Amino acid sequence: MFSKFISIGDKIELQAVSREDEEKPESPAKVYHSEVTEIQSEDTVEITMPMEKSKLILLPIDSEYDMIFYGSSGLFQCLGRIIDRYKSNNSYLLLVEMTSNLRKYQRREFYRLRCALEMHARTLREDEVQTVESRMPYTLSNDFPLKESVIVDISGGGLRFVAAQRFEQGSLLYCSYHLMNGGEHKKYEVICKVISCIELDNRPGTFEHRVQYYDIDPVEREEIIKYIFEEERKSRQKKRFSPES
Score class of each variant (00 low, 15 high):
166 R>Q: 13
185 H>L: 13
178 H>A: 12
51 M>T: 15
53 K>W: 09
56 L>Y: 15
66 D>W: 09
180 M>E: 14
79 L>T: 03
84 D>E: 15
162 V>K: 09
111 Y>I: 15
215 D>I: 05
133 E>G: 01
127 D>N: 12
9 G>Q: 05
68 I>F: 01
227 Y>D: 02
174 Y>A: 02
206 T>H: 05
14 L>M: 14
16 A>R: 15
91 S>P: 00
49 M>Y: 05
237 Q>T: 02
78 C>T: 14
196 S>M: 11
66 D>Q: 12
169 Q>M: 11
142 N>H: 12
171 S>H: 01
124 L>R: 01
73 S>W: 08
210 R>W: 02
90 N>K: 13
147 K>A: 15
115 C>Q: 04
100 S>R: 08
232 E>I: 14
52 E>G: 09
143 D>W: 00
44 T>H: 12
142 N>D: 14
165 Q>G: 00
132 V>I: 15
55 K>P: 00
5 F>C: 11
132 V>H: 06
64 E>Y: 02
106 Q>S: 11
201 D>Q: 14
58 L>S: 10
213 Y>A: 06
210 R>D: 09
86 Y>A: 05
17 V>E: 09
153 D>A: 05
151 I>V: 15
14 L>V: 02
220 E>K: 07
154 I>G: 01
238 K>D: 08
136 M>I: 10
16 A>F: 10
103 R>G: 06
171 S>Q: 03
244 E>K: 14
62 D>Q: 14
56 L>S: 01
47 I>K: 06
183 G>P: 12
171 S>E: 04
107 R>L: 08
114 R>Q: 14
95 L>Y: 05
72 S>I: 03
16 A>C: 07
180 M>V: 11
170 G>C: 00
144 F>Y: 12
13 E>V: 00
217 D>G: 00
155 S>C: 10
134 S>Y: 00
55 K>F: 10
51 M>K: 15
164 A>W: 04
25 P>H: 04
